[in-house]
């Protein structure tokens, strides 16, 4: 089937079976090999990408379901505003073997966007730990990753506005009493 979506700010159309995993489409069809496969069953988070501003495991997304969606992978993270996180990861030793790193960065940035939308403080250390709980790392003990995420958030907070390439999520949320953050529930699939 023909699937059209935006990947790292560029429009893209491909013809693939709808049940194929977004992960394979990214890595094989589009050559975006920065997104890693660690387990293929949604346990390790190495294939985390942003789908309409929310972090998801690309190994569990059938590509048919991303028709019309906006996707950001690690290759597009800098352009999407996540550069400070990448710099902090290098500076503070948060990347060792590097296999979990792309997914870890996407989760970190996803948590930042989520916190902005909900008016939460992204800097809460327990909050960061929980935000990264779906990303397994075997090299670091997570500490330097959490330190780097925290430092990256500091830099991000100094930026004047929400980065341009950070779309709001597609939630379809219709909770009438919901206060909502910026751009809540405005996109459709």
């Amino acid at each position: 089937m023909i699937v059209t979506f935006t990947i790292n700010g560029r429009s893209c159309q491909i013809d693939v079976p709808g049940d194929h995993r977004l992960l394979d489409v990214l890595r094989v069809n589009l050559g975006l090999t920065g997104t890693k496969e660690g387990c293929g069953e949604g346990e390790c988070g190495a294939c985390s990408v942003l789908l309409d501003g929310q972090v998801v495991n690309a190994c569990l997304i059938p590509v048919a379901q991303v028709d019309g969606a906006q996707i950001v992978t690690v290759e597009g993270l800098e352009a999407a505003g996540g550069g400070p996180l990448q710099e902090a990861f290098v500076a503070l030793g948060a990347a060792q073997c590097g296999s979990c790193t792309p997914g870890m960065l996407m989760s970190a940035y996803g948590h930042f966007l989520e916190s902005l939308r909900n008016g939460d403080d992204p800097q809460d250390r327990e909050g960061i730990r929980h935000a990264l709980a779906g990303n397994l790392c075997r090299c670091t003990g997570y500490q330097k990753i959490i330190d780097a995420v925290s430092k990256g958030y500091e830099e991000l907070a100094r930026m004047p506005s929400l980065p341009p390439a950070a779309p709001a999520p597609q939630t379809g949320h219709n909770d009438p009493s919901h206060g909502g953050g910026p751009g809540h529930g405005s996109l459709t699939g």
């Binding site: 949604g42 988070g45 985390s48 789908l51 929310q54 972090v55 998801v56 495991n57 569990l60 997304i61 989760s107 996803g110 948590h111 989520e114 929980h130 935000a131 709980a133 779906g134 990303n135 999520p169 949320h173 909770d175 009438p176 009493s177 919901h178 206060g179």
Partner: peptide
């Protein structure tokens, strides 16, 4: 969901126990 927080906090707690962020989003 504020509606659930108010009326069914147990469901909010259960929802937070499902997987992690990537899974909860899907």
């Amino acid at each position: 969901s504020p509606l659930l927080r108010e009326n069914f906090p147990a469901l909010v707690e259960a929802a937070r126990h499902v997987g992690a962020a990537q899974i909860q989003n899907r």
